[in-house]
């Protein structure tokens, strides 16, 4: 008798369906899989913004001004310090928060105060907001402050802009360009 490597008993009938049924079933399931992938990788279309809307991005990241004035140390105060730390000018380490308000067509769309980063509040602060507005003519008014000291400057910017549908308008702060800028 030959050594047996054949299955002892063929698997139960339902586990081995007949040829045509099997091929048809596989064809259908592979097809369903392909249709599922093919459809849901491209459909339904997605509209990140309404057809008649535009976007204003308010984005500022900067180091605020020190919270107080620098002062000159007296000779007695300097004498108490180690020789390598005798800097005659002492400035506060903490920075001012950034404060921003944005009005569109007279309505306030944003009012944010961003605290400076770091355990000693000596890091930069950042504001990033998306404001969805209707496309078309907009009157934009921005107030920005990065200094809590009395009498500090408040940056203001007013502009009339016309936004196309889907347009992105960026409100940023660039000290070199005089303050608030629109990009």
């Amino acid at each position: 008798m030959k050594p047996s490597t054949d299955p002892i008993v063929a698997g139960t009938p339902r586990s081995r369906p007949a040829g045509p049924v099997r091929w048809l079933g596989q064809f259908l399931l592979y097809g369903l899989f392909a249709v599922f992938i093919g459809v849901f990788t491209q459909w339904p279309p997605y509209h990140p913004l309404g057809a008649d809307q535009a976007l204003i991005k308010v984005s500022v990241a900067r180091l605020g001004q020190p919270v107080g004035e620098c002062r000159r140390l007296s000779d007695e105060e300097l004498a108490k310090l180690p020789p390598n730390m005798r800097d005659p000018i002492r400035c506060p380490r903490e920075r001012s928060p950034l404060s921003m308000e944005v009005h569109v067509n007279g309505a306030r769309m944003l009012k944010r105060v961003a605290e400076p980063g770091g355990l000693s509040k000596d890091g930069a602060a950042a504001i990033y907001e998306r404001l969805v507005v209707p496309a078309g003519k907009q009157q934009i008014s921005v107030r920005f402050n990065d200094d809590v000291r009395p009498g500090a400057r408040i940056y203001e910017y007013d502009a009339d802009v016309t936004l196309a549908p889907g347009q992105v308008l960026v409100i940023d702060f660039d000290a070199e360009k005089g303050g608030i800028v629109l990009l």
């Binding site: 990788t41 491209q42 509209h47």
Partner: peptide
């Protein structure tokens, strides 16, 4: 185009569902 929000996207919903 960073100055534009795309009007319509053929989104891969299986991989990018988190964004919507």
């Amino acid at each position: 185009a960073l100055d534009q929000v795309p009007a319509q996207l053929r989104l891969d919903w299986l991989l990018l569902w988190l964004h919507p």
